[in-house]
Design a protein around this nucleic acid. Structure first.
Length: 424
RNA sequence: GGACAGGUGGCUGAGUGGUUUAAGGCACUCGACUCGAAAUCGAGCGUACCUUCACCGGUACCGUGGGUUCGACUCCCACCCUGUCCGCCA
């Protein structure tokens, strides 16, 4: 959520920055300012009347103590009370409208974010490793998976519909091995605290990280009163761990790593990515979350990307790092790097991680602050990144390490998690 | 799910309709005293919003939301949470 006071002080800056996103959100600035002006004016009126009422009520107390007649004064104050009540209703109405608009307005982007209109304008920061050299035509993962009995897409469709996966045998075991490998790497070597959060969250949490109110149609909702949402990413429960808190300065930085399944409706997604297990409604992911001070958030973003890249390097996979442009970056991110791994079977770069600095965008929504050295309450900066998303990592492993004889080699770091097994 | 008890600042704890401007204590910060410290003494010490260049000032907040009243920490209603006991349960 953007700071209305900063918008008030520098509307042109916000208009220009929002316009860079190419989403039309800069139109909200004028609307927000009008609401803000109205709100403050009404608030002043109401508060002046309240001051008047407080003063008069005390007088009544004094008159009564002396045994005087309060009828006239009473009627006068009652009238003031009615005016106050009308103004306060108006204030609530304006605040609700302003707040709703703020919750639907995206973050502005950091100076270093490339300006552009679509994924084509994303900047390639670096390409790491080489595409694997195979002396045969690489097969796509769905063929490899079916041959080795690792995945069963037809069974998944039968029980849940399209966009779901059933892992079987060694495939299921590989999934489990990847979860353990990734959690161990990040907790033991990168200093993250492991968290195992609920997979169902309340609407407030979804607002906190920015999925609601704008992207409700992408989420699975459980009809409860109040409703619950299936987590689209561990970012939601984990970042919200400290919502509504004022953290002592010495508790920062906080680093959490969490495994959860992720549930996404991905409405309207049809086309080239839908074959096999590239885009599914439920997938496993290890998520990394940082809560930091504003001063260190951009340095932390680089560290976070490094932690995600470490996985791909250790597993010997070919990948590239993109800096997402203003037209492609997510709603809440001030800056975002995507990691894409090369999948030779499908011949495509697949996104396996998205590492974002939200600055104080999420912290404002969830009222997450820390007390700095001067005793001031400051909004934290929040970051998160996948480390990594499993299905596409699974795809890259199968397609990269496939052998002419149909087997798949297991990269060294994963072998201890598969009982020393060297191939599938 | 049921019964009972409770929810007031960082902590503790008073406050049953009107100088509550939320007492007192602890902790913390600053100052005095001291060679230094302890003890002691003095002062300060919540959050948010509005206003102001700033000082000053105003409003709201005692679990949450409503209600009664000229006026609510205090009375009424609903809900939430915590504790204890009981029930159910992988």
């Amino acid at each position: 959520m953007l700071d209305i006071r900063k918008i008030r002080e520098n509307p042109d800056f916000y208009r220009e920055r929002l316009a860079r996103r190419n989403s039309g959100d800069e139109k909200s600035v004028a609307l927000l300012l009008a609401l803000d002006e109205k709100r403050r004016k009404t608030l002043q009126e109401s508060e002046a009347l309240k001051s008047e009422r407080n003063r008069a009520s005390k007088e009544i107390g004094a008159i009564k103590a002396k045994g005087g007649d309060i009828a006239e004064k009473s009627a006068e104050v009652k009238k003031i009370g009615e005016q106050i009540s009308a103004l306060d209703q108006e204030i609530v109405r304006i605040e609700t409208e302003q707040n709703d608009l703020l919750l639907r307005t995206p973050n502005i982007n950091h100076d270093s974010v490339p300006v552009g209109t679509s994924a084509a304008d994303n900047r390639v920061e670096r390409i790491v490793g080489e595409p694997v050299k195979l002396d045969f035509k690489p097969k796509p993962h769905w063929e490899i998976g079916a041959q080795l009995g690792l995945i069963d897409l037809e069974a998944a469709t039968k029980i849940s519909g399209s966009g779901f996966i059933v892992f079987r045998g060694a495939g299921a075991r590989l999934q489990r091995a990847l979860i353990n490998y990734l959690l161990d790497l990040h907790t033991l070597q990168h200093g993250y605290t492991e968290v195992s959060p609920p997979f169902l969250v309340r609407g407030e949490s979804m607002i906190g990280t920015g999925q609601l109110p704008k992207f409700a149609e992408d989420m699975y909702r459980v009809e409860e009163e109040p409703p619950l949402y299936l987590v689209p990413t561990a970012e939601v429960p984990v970042t919200n761990l400290h919502r509504e808190e004022i953290l002592a300065a010495d508790r920062l930085p906080i680093r959490y790593a969490a495994y959860t399944p992720c549930f996404r409706r991905e409405a309207g997604s049809a086309g080239k990515d839908t074959r096999g297990m590239i885009r599914v409604h439920q997938f496993d992911k290890i998520e990394l979350v940082h809560l930091v001070t504003p001063e260190e958030s951009y340095a932390t973003l680089e560290v976070l990307v490094g932690h995600a890249e470490r996985v791909l390097k250790d597993l010997g996979l070919h990948y590239r790092v993109l800096s997402l442009c203003t037209g492609d970056i997510g709603f809440g991110a001030a800056k975002c790097y995507d990691l894409e791994v090369w999948a030779p079977g499908v011949g495509a770069w697949l996104e396996v991680s998205s590492c974002s600095n939200f600055e104080d965008f999420q912290a404002r929504r969830m009222n997450l602050r820390y007390k700095n050295g001067e005793g001031k309450n400051i909004f934290c900066h929040t970051l998160n990144g996948s480390g990594l998303a499993l299905p596409r990592l699974f795809i890259a492993l199968l397609e990269t390490y496939q052998q002419a004889d149909g087997h798949v080699l297991i990269p060294e770091p994963l072998r201890p998690y598969l009982g020393g097994q060297q191939s599938l």
